[in-house]
Design a protein around this nucleic acid. Structure first.
Length: 494
RNA sequence: GCCCCCAUCGUCUAGCGGCCCAGGACGUGGCCCUCUCAAGGCCAAAACAGGGGUUCGAGUCCCCUUGGGGGCACCA
């Protein structure tokens, strides 16, 4: 039960693009572990690549976490005892640590130019060798190296990977991983621009920030032995390593690509968190969906964030890759929409009506919600079901007013009879209107669908709607009769 | 090419040597309910990749094969 000790866990994205589902899941697992153990959830921005930096990416990341409700305890915008939390603001720290490794004989300055490295790689490829650094600068005299640096020569600092032996690392989900050191490369730790690579930056920060568990996708697994060696060279303790697998495209063949992302968009889905809200997905649904791609629970898999915290166990994550399945997203989204209290759902769908240019009466909205709740897969589904409630007039298609197997004239006759029944009521409610209307159906020897269908199209303007009598009660007797009268006229003109 | 990881229904998964002729969920098909569309209820089809071991006993442990995924940057 050692992992019930309060964990310090960090979500460490790089601001190089949009926040996608994969990052969101990693952040979620980080969050769950931290909350489950009464620990700390930290956001750290790994912005050491100036070339790939994307303006606004950090904001999208923060906005995404906020939307999902994955609130962090320490981070670049809120500070904390181990800051700064943006790597670009920690250059000196990495510089000193890189040189400490040089001093310890575990790293060395390297003056090879990108040009030489490119040629080297090219030649190795031609000889069908593994691309790797050939170690030209590995045995350079340190004093000489310092002189060249003092002369202003560009350099990087490389890790001096042991040439012999085997590195054993332990992943919580996969057990021991053995790697022969001779297949490992002398990786660059400090770039010529003075900023660290991931290998140095992440290891140094994880140590300094007292990170206990590192959760990252398995694309990092190949560099785990490197990281373990770096940590050992410093003489530090290792965190617990957890490498969940990556998400595969819906076909199960390979990682999601730009093209797959575009395909998803065409179907009304997205792999980008920033799109999800506009598409009508709610955080509860998205969270539940991504949580269970890589984590299995025996049953009762509809869970809120709090319920997930209660049931989370880092050891139950699965090591195998998971294909994205948008049909399941629909399912989880709809399930959580159904769970929302009326007031809450009303508040969440209101913006969709407003954006459609409709005027929303809050009291009426509250009465509509129970009628459409179980019909919504995404929040924006509220429009096709209920937009007509907020319109002054509806525009039924004449042909849709004609009941199945009946003529326009017959349909008009039925509508007139219905008008008589409804207009005779003191008030139009489900209780007052439904029994006499059913009696009418009986008397006419027709099916409920035929008679109610005419009314539905007349009153709502559409063939699919929330339950008819409940809807009419909300619309009100006066307007119902008005619309019915108009429908009768339309039918008579056919 | 080299290195690493993974392997239960179409998909996400439960299973941590006997409780499994393998359970749940999504999706699919059927039925019920029904004023449309949903929701809900019931039922059905659907999997331990293959081959060797270990063991009284293997989906569960080991090895090989096959298949899939990932990585081989002064990117993360």
């Amino acid at each position: 039960m050692t992992d019930l000790m309060p964990a310090r866990v960090r979500f460490a994205p790089s601001p190089t693009g949009r926040m996608h589902l994969g990052s969101a899941r990693t952040a979620l697992y980080d969050y769950l572990l931290a909350r489950r153990t009464g620990g700390t959830f930290i956001l750290r921005i790994e912005d050491t690549d100036r070339k790939r930096y994307v303006e606004g990416a950090e904001e999208e990341l923060i906005e995404g976490l906020r939307w999902l409700g994955l609130n962090y305890d320490e981070g670049p915008d809120i500070g904390g005892p181990y800051g700064p939390y943006r790597q670009s603001e920690r250059r000196e720290i990495y510089y000193h640590h890189a040189w400490e490794l040089v001093e310890r004989g575990a790293a060395y300055p390297c003056f090879c130019t990108p040009d030489r490295l490119a040629k080297l790689r090219e030649e190795q490829m031609r000889r069908k060798e593994n691309p790797h650094y050939d170690g030209l600068c590995r045995h350079l005299d340190l004093g000489e190296a310092r002189r060249r640096i003092a002369n202003g020569e560009k350099y990087v600092i490389r890790f001096k990977m042991p040439k012999e032996g085997v590195t054993t690392a332990v992943d919580l989900l996969r057990g021991e991983i053995h790697t022969a050191n001779n297949v490992l490369d002398d990786a660059v730790l400090l770039k010529s621009d003075g900023l660290p690579t991931y290998h140095l930056g992440a290891m140094v920060d994880d140590h300094l920030m007292k990170i206990t568990h590192v959760i990252r996708t398995m694309e990092w697994l190949p560099s785990l032995p490197l990281h373990v060696n770096i940590i050992r060279a410093f003489g530090w303790d290792e965190p617990v390593w957890v490498h969940p697998s990556v998400f595969l495209k819906p076909s199960g063949k390979g990682k999601m690509s730009k093209r797959d992302a575009a395909d998803a968009m065409k179907d009304g889905y997205s792999i980008y968190l920033g799109d999800m809200r506009a598409l009508g997905f709610i955080p509860e649904g998205v969270l539940n969906w991504i949580a269970l791609m890589g984590w299995g629970v025996p049953e009762d898999d509809i869970m809120t964030l709090d319920e997930m915290i209660q049931r989370f166990d880092i050891r139950n994550l699965t090591p195998s890759p998971a294909a994205i399945n948008f049909a399941r997203l629909d399912h989880f989204n709809a399930a959580h929409i159904r769970r929302l209290p009326t007031e809450e759902l009303a508040a969440r769908i209101k913006p969709y009506f407003l954006n459609a240019g409709l005027q929303v009466d809050d009291e009426r909205l509250l009465r509509i919600v129970p009628l459409i709740r179980e019909r919504l897969v995404t929040l924006d589904d509220c429009l096709p079901f209920a937009a007509w409630f907020f319109k002054e007039n509806v525009e039924p298609k004449p042909e849709e007013l004609v009941a199945k197997n009946l003529t326009p004239a017959q349909s008009a006759e039925i509508a007139r009879k219905a008008f008589e029944v409804l207009s005779g009521l003191p008030v139009l409610t489900v209780e007052s209107a439904e029994p006499p209307m059913r009696a009418l159906v009986e008397r006419l020897g027709l099916s409920p669908g035929q008679v109610f269908g005419i009314l539905r199209v007349a009153v709502t303007g559409q063939t699919v709607s929330p339950p008819l009598f409940e809807s009419m009660e909300i619309v009100g007797k006066e307007k119902v009769l008005q619309r019915l009268q108009r429908a009768i006229e339309m039918l008579e003109r056919m």
